[in-house]
Structure formats: C-alpha cells, structure tokens
Design a protein around this nucleic acid. Structure first.
Length: 445
RNA sequence: GGAAGGGUCGCAUAGUGGCCGAGUGCGCACGGCUGGAAACCGUGUGGGGGCGGCAGCCCCUCGUGGGUUCGAAUCCCACCCCUUCCGCCA
C-alpha cells in the first residue's frame, strides 16, 4: 500500500511511475475520495465534540423541561452524526479497497521496460558444462531412473502433481536441511516453522489478496488460505506490532510447501516439475530499518547466490525491469540457473525489496529509539532456493551418459555419504528378492 | 465437538449507564532531595486520525464489528482470541 499522503501531494509522480510499470490505478478516484473524506471527518468530528460537551452538561442537569429539551436536541444531533458516520464508513471502505489495488512504486534505478524483454542480466557465475554425449532433460532422467512417478501423481491429485521417489525424495530433504543450515550458520538467519494455512488478513498483508486470489487455494468453511510461499506467514509474524528499539534487522528463514493454482499459466511448462501446484521452498525474510534496505537487498541476493555457488551450478542474476516487477516489489532480482537438458534458464530464486509497501498493509512498525514515534519497517524476501527447479538443475547438470547423477559434494554428508544416484527400486520387489531380503533382515536381528 | 470463565493505557489490577473522556501499584522518563545513590517527593507516560504556520485544539481507540441510549469499559448481538474441564486425537 502506498502512503495516501504521497498520492495526495505528488499525484503526477505516481502517474509517471504507473506508466513505467505498465499498470493502471484509479488515482483520480482516490484523490477525490480522500478530499471528501477529510471534509466529512472535519464536519463529523466537530458535531461529536458538540455532543460530548452537551452530554456532559446534561449529566449535571436535574430532571425538568431544560433537561428534556437538551436531550431532544441531542437526539436530533445523534441522528445526524449517525448518518454522516455511515457515509464516512462507506467512503473509507471504498478508499481502502482502491488503495489495496495500487501497485508499489519502482525504485528510481530500476530499468524501464515493457515486459520481461526489458530485464537486465546483471552478472553470470560459472561456466555451463560441456557435454560429450546427448544431454537429457530432467523428466527423461527421472523417468529412466524411477526418481519421479508422474502418472501416479496425476492419478492422486491431477495434472501438475507428482511423486518424488527414493534418492530424489531424499535429495530434496537433504537440500532443504543443508540450505537452512547454511543460512542459519553462515548468513545469520533464525529458522522458523510457520503455519501453511493463513487468514485472509495475512494474505492482504503481503499483497496476495485482494488482487491475486485466483492463484490461491482456499477453504471456504474456515476462510483459510494455503500459502503460495513462506513469505506470507513469516512476513505476517509481526503484523500489527511495534518492534522495540534495537530489534532490527530481523533475519528469518523457513522451509515450507507452497501451493499455487497456476491457472494463468495453463498449458505452459507442463512437462516435468518446473511448474507445479505444490512444491517446497526455502525462503529468507528480512525486516530492516528503511535506510538499510538497499544494502540488505544486495546481501540477500548474495545469500541466495551462495547456495548455487556451493552447489557449483552456473547461474545468472537478472534484474527485473519496471514492466516485469511484481505488484508488491520496488526492486527485484531473479537468480536463474542453467538447465542444459531443458536448454533454458530456470528461475530458482526471486529476491525483492518491498520497502514499506507490505509493512503498511500489515501494519508492521518499529520504534527507532526509546520514546520515538513508530515507523514502518522495510520488508524483503528471497528464495534460498525453490526445490523442484534446483532438483532439475542438479539432475541435468550432474548427469552421466548412462543417466546416473552425481550428488553435489556439499550434499553428500546429508545423504549418508552417498555420491551418486542410480536406478531406484520398484515400489515392490519380485517375490524371490523379497524372500532373500527378509532372510537377511531376520539374520540381522 | 460440549461446558464454564475471561480479554481494561508496557506489566498487574480497579471498574455493572454520567464524579471513569479510565483509578491504583509496578515499570519507564524527566525534575527535586543527596557528596553520590537507595528510599522519598513531584511531573509525565500508548496508538490512529482531522484542523492549524507554530503553540495547540478536536475526534476515535477499554479484543473486533454492530446495536440500545442525550450519554457505553459498563447493557444487547455477532465474530476473533485466551484459559480451565470433558470428549477426541498425532
């Protein structure tokens, strides 16, 4: 949410920003509502002051004609106040609705562009590996080794659902644990485990509602919403709070499943696990003082990059242009890892500075010093990283001609020392193998 | 799921229609006292909004939203949350 005062005082600046964003917002109606609201507030406040004074006087009057007359007069005044209060409430609700649909302003240094074609590659890291054999996409590798059961995923839950099997399921678990450990022990984050279902207000706080409800799963009965990212519950941790002096910056990291309907992308990326309805993601969230948020964004990007470097996966950092910025971000960098099998750059992380946009919506403030007025914090977040696409990158970058996969060195301690992923066992064994296995297990016991 | 109790100014509490537009204690801040400190005394103490050049004035806020009333922390309704007991459950 933008500061209403900013819109009131610099409407041209806002309109200019909206043009750059390729977005529209009802600035004229907002200005009109704001003007009418302030006039109305002044009027109704004055009437209330009058009522308060008169009621106090009535309290001191003894029963009689004067008292009756005063009460009658106040009854009329009360009716008038109620009428104006209703008008005011309707007006404020409308104003609030409109304000919630105005996007954040881009930072002045964000490159201007119409859409993703205007994004800027900021830097590359690592050399794409050269293969002397035909490279396979991850869905072929996964199918061949029995690492992903696509058919049964679809049977259980429909398209864009999948089942990870054996070493790949374990690799995902290892990655999550390793990533969180890295962010906690080397980058200074505190791990949290938040709810995966949240109230409507939480979704409004991060900007997912009211505009983007069609990408969210929702339970009507309880009015709870499945999170599309840990950003939602973690950012809302401090909703309606005033953080005490000295509490910033706060760095939090959480691994959660993410649920997205992906209706707008129907038909896109249907092969493999690039775009799915349910996936795991490690998310970093920061609450910082406004003056520091630029610097904190750079550190956040670096923290996410560190994950890819240690996995030795070649990637590039892309800055979103104005036309490709998300609704809530003032500035955003994506990390894209090279997937040689799919022959494309995969977005595995998105790091944004929201400035006070989410803080205003969620009413997250801090006290700069003892006795000072509360101020809105700046919030930032970045993936560190999203799991399915990281798995894709590992499968495709670390593949051998026979389809087997090397496990990145940093993950081996989290995989019981295992170095390579080969064909996975079937769900059930042939009868003879089962017998042998059962005998062996009985022997161990 | 059932039953009961409860949400008051940082904390603890008082408060069943107008001396509560919120008292007291603690905490905190400033001042006094003191060589210094404790104790003591005094003053102040949240959030949001409107008007105003400033000083300041006014409105809202006793979980949230409605209602009754000239007037609501107090009465009524709905919702949210917490506690206890019972049931169920990993």
């Amino acid at each position: 949410m933008l500061d209403l005062r900013l819109i009131r005082e610099h409407p041209e600046m806002i309109r200019e920003a909206l043009r750059k964003l390729n977005a529209e917002a009802p600035i004229d109606e907002i200005l009109d509502l704001d003007e009418r609201r302030r006039t109305l507030v002044a009027e109704v406040d004055q009437l209330k002051a009058q009522r308060n004074a008169e009621s106090r006087r009535i309290a001191g009057l003894s029963p009689g004609p004067e008292r009756e007359a005063a009460i009658a007069a106040m009854r009329a005044l009360g009716d008038r106040i109620e009428e104006l209060d209703r008008e005011l409430a309707a007006l404020e609700e409308r104003l609030q609705t409109l304000l919630l649909e105005v996007p954040n302003l881009p930072d002045p240094d964000v490159p201007v562009g119409p859409d993703e074609s205007g994004n800027v590659v900021v830097r590359h890291w690592g050399e794409p590996r050269q293969f002397d054999f035909p490279v396979k996409p991850h869905w072929e590798l996964a199918e061949q080794l029995g690492l992903i059961d696509f058919e049964r995923g679809v049977k259980i839950a429909g398209s864009r659902f999948y089942v990870l099997r054996g070493d790949l399921a374990r690799l995902q678990r290892a990655l999550i644990t390793w990533m969180i450990d890295l962010h906690v022990s080397e980058h200074g984050y505190l791990e949290v485990y938040p709810p995966f279902l949240v109230r409507r207000e939480a979704m409004i706080g991060t900007g997912n509602l009211p505009k983007f409800g069609d990408n969210l799963y929702h339970d009507e009965e309880t009015d709870l919403w499945l999170i599309p990212t840990a950003e939602v519950p973690v950012t809302n941790l401090f909703r309606d709070e005033i953080l005490p002096p000295g509490s910033l910056p706060i760095y939090l990291v959480a691994a959660t499943p993410c649920f997205r309907k992906e209706k707008v992308s129907a038909g896109r990326d249907v092969r493999g696990i690039k775009r799915v309805h349910q996936f795991e993601k490690v998310e970093m969230v920061k609450f910082v003082e406004p003056e520091r948020s630029d610097e904190e964004l750079q550190r956040l990007v670096a923290d996410a990059e560190d994950v890819l470097r240690r996995l030795e996966l070649p990637y590039r950092v892309v800055q979103m242009c104005t036309g490709d910025l998300s609704f809530t971000a003032a500035k955003k960098f994506d990390l894209e890892v090279w997937a040689p099998g799919s022959q494309e750059w995969l977005e595995v992380s998105s790091c944004s500075n929201f400035r006070d946009f989410q803080a205003r919506r969620a009413n997250i403030r801090f006290r700069p010093s003892e006795g000072a007025r509360p101020q809105f914090v700046h919030t930032l977040n970045g993936s560190g990283l999203a799991l399915p696409r990281t798995l894709i990158a590992i499968l495709e970058n670390y593949q051998h001609p026979d389809g087997s996969i090397d496990i990145p060195a940093v993950l081996r301690p989290y995989m019981g020392g295992q170095e390579r992923i080969g064909p996975q066992p079937a769900y059930w064994m042939p009868a003879q193998a089962r017998q042998t296995r059962e005998q062996a297990l009985a022997g161990d016991a």
